[in-house]
Design a binder for these strands. Structure first.
Lengths: 195, 195
DNA sequence: TGACCTGACGAACGAACGTTCGAGTATTGA
DNA sequence: TCAATACTCGAACGTTCGTTCGTCAGGTCA
C-alpha cells in the first residue's frame, strides 16, 4: 500500500510541475504516471485513492508556500518590515517565471468543484489561514507603534489578500503590468496603515 | 446539427445552475443531459463539440453579468455614482444566495486548464474587459471633477477588481464577513479617490 | 398525399477514468 | 543462504468521457 518516501516526494514534485499546465481537473492518475515514468498502479499504490493524492498535492503546495514566503519573512523581527517582506515574497511567488497558472492554493480554492469534496475543503481551509496571519502581524505592528492605532487589522488583511488575488488573476494575461500595479497598491496600503 | 433556440437556451440555463455545484470540470455532456432530461446525443447536437458548449456557457454567464451589473449601473449618468452602483451590484452578484461558487467567469478564469484551451482563452478575454471598463469610468469621473485629478485610474481599477476577487475567495467560507469587509474596502477606495 | 426538413432519440465507438489484483523484483534482516 | 518485506509492474475491472451514426416522429409546404 505505502510507497517509498523519496518516490512519493518525486511524484508530488511532478504533480506540482504538471499542475499549472493541466489544472486539478487534468491531474489524473494516468497522466501523472506517464509524467513520472511510472505505471498507474505503481503510482497509485503510494496514495490509495484519488482524494488522498489531491490532498497530498495541496499540502505539498502549502509546504512550499510556507518555505518560500512565510518562513523567510519571519527573519524580520519588526512587524511592519515583515509585512513588506511578505508582500514582496508573495508577489514573487505569484509571478515567478515558468508558472502558467498562479499559486496552486488559489487555483484549488477557486476550482474547488473540480476536486473531491474533501480535497476542496482542505484547500479552502489551508488558504483561510493566510488572512488571519496577516491580520495578526498588522495587530502586532500597531502595538509596536509602526501602524496607527485606529487601523482595522482585519480590513488591512482583506486588502492585502485582495491585491495578491488580483495579481493572480491578471498575471495570466499580463504578468508585468500586474506586478507593477500590485507594487503600487501595496505601497498605498502600507502608507495608509503607517502611524 | 443545430437545435431549436428555446431548447438551447434551456440547456445553457441548466448548465449555469449546475456550474456552482459541479464546476467546469463536472460540466460533462452526460451529466448535463440527465440534468435537463435530454439524451446525450440530443443535447450534444446543439453544440457539436465540448469546446463550443463551454464557450456558450461562458458567454451566457457574461450576458447575465452584463444584464445584472453593467447595464443597470448605466442608469447613473454621474460617473462617481455609477462606480458606487457598480460596486454594490457586483457585490450582490458575487454573494447572491444559492450560489456555491462565485461568478462563473472568475471560476473559469482561475480553473482555465480544466477547460479546453480555446474556452479558457475566451473566459480570460471576457474577464479582461472589466478592469479597463472601470478605469474608463474613473477617468470620466476625474474629468467630471468628482475624483481628484492625480488619481491613477488604472490602479483604481486594479484595486476595484481586487476587492471583488477577495470577496469571491472568502465568500465560500464566510459570505457575511466577506461582504461586510468588501463594503468597507469599497468605501475606503471611493473616499481616497474623491476630489 | 407525399417530399421535405428539423430536432431528438438509442446504440455504439474508442479512449481514459479510478481502482483492484496477483505476480514479479529488488532490498533487507536473521 | 533463505525467508520476509517493500516496492513496482502489467493486466484487467466497470464506468464515464466526448463523439458519431442511423433512425424516427412532427411540422411545413407543394
Amino acid at each position: 500500500m505505502a510507497g517509498s518516501k523519496p518516490t512519493r516526494e518525486r511524484i508530488l514534485q511532478s504533480a506540482l510541475d504538471l499542475l499549472p499546465r493541466a489544472g486539478f481537473a487534468g491531474l489524473t492518475v494516468g497522466r501523472l504516471a506517464s509524467e513520472t515514468g511510472m505505471s498507474k498502479s505503481g503510482l497509485f499504490g503510494h496514495f490509495g485513492s484519488q482524494t488522498v493524492l489531491q490532498i497530498a498535492v495541496i499540502e505539498a503546495a502549502a509546504a512550499r508556500f510556507n518555505a518560500s514566503v512565510i518562513t523567510p519573512a519571519q527573519d524580520e523581527a519588526d512587524k511592519a518590515a515583515r509585512l513588506e517582506q511578505l508582500a514582496a515574497l508573495w508577489l514573487y511567488w505569484l509571478t515567478r517565471p515558468g508558472l502558467g497558472l498562479p499559486c496552486p492554493l488559489i487555483q484549488a480554492a477557486f476550482s474547488a468543484p473540480g476536486l473531491t469534496d474533501e480535497a476542496g475543503q482542505t484547500a479552502i481551509q489551508i488558504r483561510s489561514r493566510f488572512a488571519p496571519y496577516i491580520a495578526r502581524q498588522a495587530e502586532a505592528a500597531k502595538t509596536e507603534g509602526a501602524y496607527r492605532a485606529d487601523l482595522d487589522a482585519a480590513l488591512f488583511a482583506f486588502s492585502f489578500e485582495a491585491i495578491g488575488l488580483a495579481v493572480a488573476a491578471q498575471a495570466m494575461r499580463d504578468a508585468e503590468a500586474a506586478r507593477h500595479r500590485a507594487e503600487a497598491a501595496f505601497a498605498h496600503l502600507f502608507a495608509d496603515a503607517a502611524a
